[in-house]
Nucleic acid binder design. Structure first.
Length: 502
DNA sequence: CGTTTAATATGTATATATTAAACGGTGCCATACT
């Protein structure tokens, strides 16, 4: 079997040898085991399901979070590797989609890329069952925990969806997962502890830096200086679309480098254009919200600047993880101020329902009402919240059936409590982000420990707490920002508010 | 909750100060509408 694996690796992927972790994941997958693979960005995750897809008898379904990722990967497989792959999603018209699915039914495709939403459609499942599903790969599997509980609950429905496909083995892969996230993925898909394959998540080539800023002008000045002086391509992350637009306009006015913006408010053509330009080296820096970056294949990103505090260490680690996939040194700067927390708190409060909203939703749900635009407007609820509440309501009602003998709980109360629980989890993640900037210990250690990583080695620089100065990093002098005691104290107060009361 | 933008106030023409209102992330899909 070993020889076969290597033959496929060379024949289809052009590599002489496997990269660390790959062979061990693939072996288990070929044995029919369900596996969770954790590999640092740039570790070659996609080969771990693309190669088994060629060797296994049936089709491999790749659950992918973004249409743009499906398009990229399928194109690469078809043109560069000559592997028969396809995708089904909402960019296709019904006739087109039917054509693809009919081809799949005949077994002409080895890989199908699809979203968790689309995978629930009965016709899609019917076709896949005809072809026979050998493996379900879940790409960017941290999305299950990051999005499954609120933003895209279809991620948490995946175990039920896979039941309809006869529970094929699962290979979940990601670059960031805390112990809690690993446990959640394992229990959802029945992955045994010995089938969790972990490569080191420590990013030895990244130098971690941190600076507290006072006021908008200081923040902006520091950011623009960094963009001007740092070498190579980079990304600047902001918390809001507006901040992105403002920064782009301000920098383009008299900045030295080629910079453009990217966020969810832009249409897909614009977004595609900007991303393509960045990948092709026609843009030096992208200023973006967290909409940018997932799955982008650019090995030479040299720096990431966080203009504001991100919402969690998971998000932070994902975003800086895009630095230096080529293994060459890179630099991560996190700018923060006390007021950065407010936007995240606001979003959190807005995302989750009040008891009244749950009640109104439940009444309509019970009455069998469709949650169309009109109904939603009537109860003043967003499409997103209705989708989330549908999920929790379904859970509450099916759960009630199972345990009906014990006690009859109020479903509305039950649903609201479940959503409050998730809200508390998110609040805690935000507090952990704040703790990170407040703690005075080594940044690398703190971040690595959060993800259960014990290796803290580094190549050139560790972090600003371990003696990295920006002057040293850039090889020239630069104004250092002095943190003010007052602001730190306020931030501690804000942190206290985030933590649950005892 | 903080920042940005729009609207008003001032006191007699342009611009600044003050106050009020608006706004805020991530994407799939289906459906309704042009």
């Amino acid at each position: 079997m070993n020889k076969d694996m290597e033959w496929y690796l060379k024949e289809y992927f052009g590599y002489e040898a496997f990269r660390p972790g790959q062979a061990s994941i693939i072996k288990r997958v070929l044995e029919g085991q369900s596996v969770l693979g954790l590999m640092a960005t740039g570790g070659g995750k996609s080969v771990t399901y693309q190669l088994p897809a060629l060797m296994l008898p049936g089709i491999t379904v790749v659950v992918s979070p973004l249409i743009s990722l499906m398009v990229d990967q399928v194109q690469q497989l078809r043109t560069k590797k000559r592997i028969p792959a396809a995708y089904v999603n909402s960019t296709q018209d019904p006739a087109e989609a039917r054509e693809v699915l009919q081809k799949i039914a005949t077994g002409a495709c080895k890989l199908l890329y699809i979203s968790p939403e689309k995978l629930q459609q009965p016709y899609v499942q019917h076709v896949l069952n005809q072809a026979g599903v050998s493996l379900v790969a879940i790409d960017e599997a941290h999305c299950i925990s990051a999005w499954g509980h609120d933003f895209r609950t279809d991620y948490l429905r995946l175990p039920d969806t896979l039941k309809q496909l006869g529970n094929p083995p699962v290979l979940a892969v990601t670059a960031t997962a805390t112990t809690a996230v690993r446990n959640e993925i394992c229990s959802l898909f029945g992955i045994a502890q010995e089938h969790v394959v972990v490569q080191t998540l420590n990013r030895a080539n990244i130098a971690y830096d941190l600076a507290e800023v006072n006021g908008e002008s200081e923040r902006r000045q520091l950011t623009f200086e960094l963009i001007d002086r740092l070498e190579g391509p980079g990304i600047v992350y902001c918390s809001t679309r507006q901040a992105v637009d403002v920064l782009v306009a301000a920098y383009q006015l008299d900045g030295k480098r080629r910079v453009d913006g990217y966020h969810g408010g832009m249409n897909s053509m614009e977004r595609m254009l900007i991303q393509t330009q960045f990948l092709a080296g026609e843009l030096d820096v992208i200023i973006a919200t967290n909409a940018f970056g997932m799955g982008i294949d650019k090995p030479d990103i040299r720096f990431v600047i966080h203009y504001q505090l991100p919402a969690s260490l998971e998000a932070y680690s994902q975003e800086i993880g895009r630095i230096g996939r080529d293994g060459r040194p890179g630099y991560a700067m996190l700018l923060y101020a006390q007021e950065d927390i407010q936007i995240h708190q606001y979003m959190l409060d807005k995302e989750y329902p009040t008891p009244l909203q749950v009640q109104q939703f439940f009444q309509h749900y019970r009455a069998g009402a469709a949650f169309d635009a009109q109904t939603l407007a009537m109860i003043d609820m967003s499409e997103e919240m209705a989708a989330m509440l549908t999920f929790y309501t379904e859970r509450a009602l099916s759960g009630a059936q199972v345990s009906s003998s014990t006690e009859v709980t109020n479903p509305v109360q039950d649903i609201w409590q479940k959503t409050e629980k998730r809200k508390a989890v998110k609040r805690k993640k935000l507090s952990e982000m704040v703790s990170y900037v407040l703690a005075e210990s080594c940044l690398r250690k703190h971040l690595n420990q959060y993800f259960g990583e014990k290796d803290h080695s580094y190549q050139h620089f560790c972090c600003s707490r371990c003696g990295l100065s920006r002057a040293a990093y850039e090889g020239e002098r630069m104004v250092m920002v002095q943190p003010e005691a007052q602001n730190r104290w306020n931030l501690r107060q804000a942190l206290d508010k985030l933590l649950p009361k005892k």
